[in-house]
Computed example of a mutant assay.
Amino acid sequence: MIGKRYTVPVITLAATRRDVYGKALAKSRTEGLLPVVVYGRKEQSASYFVALPDFKKVYREAGESSVISLKTPEGALDVLIHETGKDPITGEFIHADFYAVEKGKALRVSAPIVWVGEAPAIKLGGIVVKVLHELEVEAFPQDLPHEISVDLAGLETLESQISVKDLAIPAQVKIIAEPDDIVAAVAVAKEEEEAPVMDISQIEVEKRGKQEEEGAGTPEQGDQTSSP
């Protein structure tokens, strides 16, 4: 389902020149500065610092699929967060790579799916199966979506499903997937079959009868005196 055109809000992040590298970066990190690198097809690699609190806020808003306007001393650059590094112990960001995009050229990125609403089919005993968790999309840099919302309210019956063609997608965004690809569906939980209950008394009767039959065919042995 193609929706109306929309305007993606501009997300900005200030950067300062960086001349510190290697082990010397430890001190900068304690001061709340995050080392970043910017590169692209038509951009030479450049190193900067950004404020860690600002980066974390921008990352929550933009993720890795929305364009950011990076304000550098040389001017503004349209970039995507391409890769991040985190401290294995604290989980804090310690590095980030930005990819400088080319204006006027469409990009393909993976946009995460965000689930909204509740599926009415759950009240009928159904279980929502989320088949996809992200979708590859293509759009010009300024039109790239941060996320794709999928409304579970469309899952009304136990046979309901949501396909790519059912999604409300902005007109300037193209999903790289088949229209009939399933995004989410309803499944019905199968009841476990009860194991057959064995009649213990019948087993005991059969066992006792077998023992009696075996006993009847075995002669009793007593003391025997051999004759010379």
Rank of each mutant, 00 (worst) to 15 (best):
T90P: 05
R29W: 15
G63W: 08
V129Y: 09
G3E: 08
K4P: 00
H133C: 10
E74R: 01
T12K: 03
K27Q: 08
H146F: 11
A62I: 07
S66T: 07
L13V: 07
S69Y: 02
D181H: 11
I176V: 15
V109G: 03
E102M: 03
I200M: 15
G217T: 09
A24L: 14
K71F: 12
A184T: 02
R208N: 14
G3I: 11
K123Q: 13
Q224A: 12
I176W: 12
D143L: 05
E138M: 15
V67Y: 00
I162T: 02
T72K: 09
E212P: 00
Q142W: 10
Y39D: 01
D199L: 10
Y99K: 09
G209L: 09
T12S: 12
A51S: 05
D87E: 14
K23D: 04
S28F: 12
V186Y: 09
E74F: 08
V114D: 00
V150F: 07
V173F: 14
D78F: 01
V36I: 10
V131Y: 10
E43I: 07
P35Q: 08
K23H: 09
K23Y: 02
L132T: 01
F140L: 14
S45L: 13
H82W: 15
K210Q: 13
S160N: 00
M198W: 09
R5S: 06
E193L: 15
A14V: 14
E134G: 14
L13M: 08
L80I: 06
K103Q: 02
P141T: 12
Y48L: 03
E204R: 03
P88K: 05
V8F: 01
G91T: 04
T72Y: 11
P9R: 11
V116N: 07
R18N: 13
A96E: 06
I203T: 01
E214G: 05
L144M: 07
E64Y: 05
G22K: 12
P120S: 11
E214I: 14
I11N: 00
Q224F: 15
S160E: 04
D78Y: 03
Y21I: 06
Q161Y: 15
E64R: 12
Q142V: 14
R17P: 01
E220A: 08
S227Q: 08
S163F: 14
E74N: 00
G85D: 13
P53F: 06
E178K: 15
G85Y: 07
Y6H: 04
Q221K: 15
K56N: 13
D143I: 03
Y39A: 05
Q142H: 13
I148G: 00
